[in-house]
Amino acid sequence: MSDLFVVEDLTVTFPTSRGPVDVVKNVSFTVGRDDTLGIVGESGSGKSMTALAVLGLLPRGARTSGSVKLDGIELLGKSERDLRSVRGNAISMVFQDPLSSLNPYYTVGLQISEMYQTHRGGSRRSARQVAIDALDRVGIPDPARRVDHYPHQFSGGQRQRVMIAMALCCSPSLLIADEPTTALDVTVQAQILELLAELQSTTGTGMIFITHDLAVISSIAQRVLVMRSGDPVEYGTAEQVFSAPRHEYTRMLLDAVPRIDDEVAL
């Protein structure tokens, strides 16, 4: 497994009225091609901040240190202009709430083709075809018609499919998905997880999957990073973390997950 994405000693610091606070502390991990890293933690664990930091999307005033390398090229410290050519292109992201990530005034087709044209250029007509193909790939029925529809005309699960179509239209080498199924119903969640796994196996895209849900992580990730209060608590293969957790916090977290198949006494 070649290492596509290598993060070393990533630290994110926010200035506060009481002095600087580290919200991500010395986090290191690697993501290989065709590999999924799950980052799991409760609220305030720093899991989302880690994703924003590697994309250079932190709020103003935040400082980062350490190293973030994609295909051997350092991303930390790059100019905003350089980062813009990386985001959406080599690294794409999908967030929790598709409605707030999609512009309600434009058709989904326009938004996907805009993304494609920004990074790849080409004619409007070819970009439109890319959008139709992308919608088709994520399982939107009748994509040639749906490409001209607005976000509100799609259901929640379909909107997340549209987001995934947009994220994948430039064939990124890394996809960062931050709680992409958290807002979805459980049956829709199952479909989206299946879609992501299937797309990954056909395209070989590396993936960072951020969630609070350990059961979801278990079904999609090969490697797992557990975070708490900005600290990397435990990092290992999914099998190791779930079957033989080394850290007390991981054990507590696993014990707290309600089980659907267990006999429970009342």
Binding site: Q189, V216, S218, E239, F242, S243, A244, L254, I260, D261
Partner: peptide, 15 residues
């Protein structure tokens, strides 16, 4: 019920 994500039962039992 089938759609509910589950922690890999083998790993869970081992732990």
């Amino acid at each position: 019920l089938a759609a509910v994500p589950r922690i890999n039962p083998e790993w869970d039992a081992k732990r």
